[in-house]
Amino acid sequence: MIEYIQTMFSYSFITRALIVGVLVSLCAALLGVSLVLKKYSMIGDGLSHVAFGAIAIATALGFAPMKFTVPVVAVAAVLLLRVSESSKIKGDSAIAMISTGALAVGILAASMTTGMNTDINSYLFGSILAMTEEDVALSVTLSLIVIALFIVFYNKIFAVTFDETFAAATGTKVRLYNTLIAVLTSVTVVLGMRMMGALLISSLIIFPSLSAMRVCKRFRSVIITAAAISVFCFTTGIIVSYIASTPTGATVAVINICAFLAFALVGRFIRS
């Protein structure tokens, strides 16, 4: 078994995927706690569709996919937040509108130029082969920035997540921190979707924090547990997908579901 795993890591594409995946899982879990508690889970999902649209357009126009997609999705995140704050259209329908719209535009852009080739498929469902050396460098830098900003603004993020009105009334710049959370989420989504796929990346954001919340009673322990679950599930997922020759993104998502069920069971046991 150990030999098997050693052989696995002798493939440089797997090592690359593991480094990026672990960092992205960490970012997703940290931000996920806040997003889930603020009832913004769908934002992660909406952003991944926007990211797909942006990547399809970038490919069609011959731009570097990551460098084009990160800023586009960041802008979309700010827009989504503004739209869901306004009372005219309810938040969830606004997100559904933007995400299906972006998906449609992306598919059109892709089919008009190259057809639905494997590249686009790998963006939708994820591919472990997708990461180039340059992508890895960019992903590592960006995810370290996300983690650092999260730690620095941890107390403010808690205050804004727990009670926006109180935070605003006592002088915290709520809008700034909401925007920060949304932009960091968009970066995480773009970095993670190459491997997990646009359709599966939000599982990294939602599942670990929900699992942690079944058991933990403090915000800090929810954050730490979610991060640990996320990294563990990703690492397990990539090993299982190598051994069983299954798609990495789907495998990681299914393992996250198993972890959620286990934690839900433990949580029920503790409470009774």
Binding site: L37, K38, K39, F158, T161, F162, D163, M213, C216, K217, R218, F219, V222
Partner: peptide, 8 residues
């Protein structure tokens, strides 16, 4: 949001 918030 606070009704189901995991914080001490």
């Amino acid at each position: 949001v606070q009704k189901d918030f995991p914080a001490s």
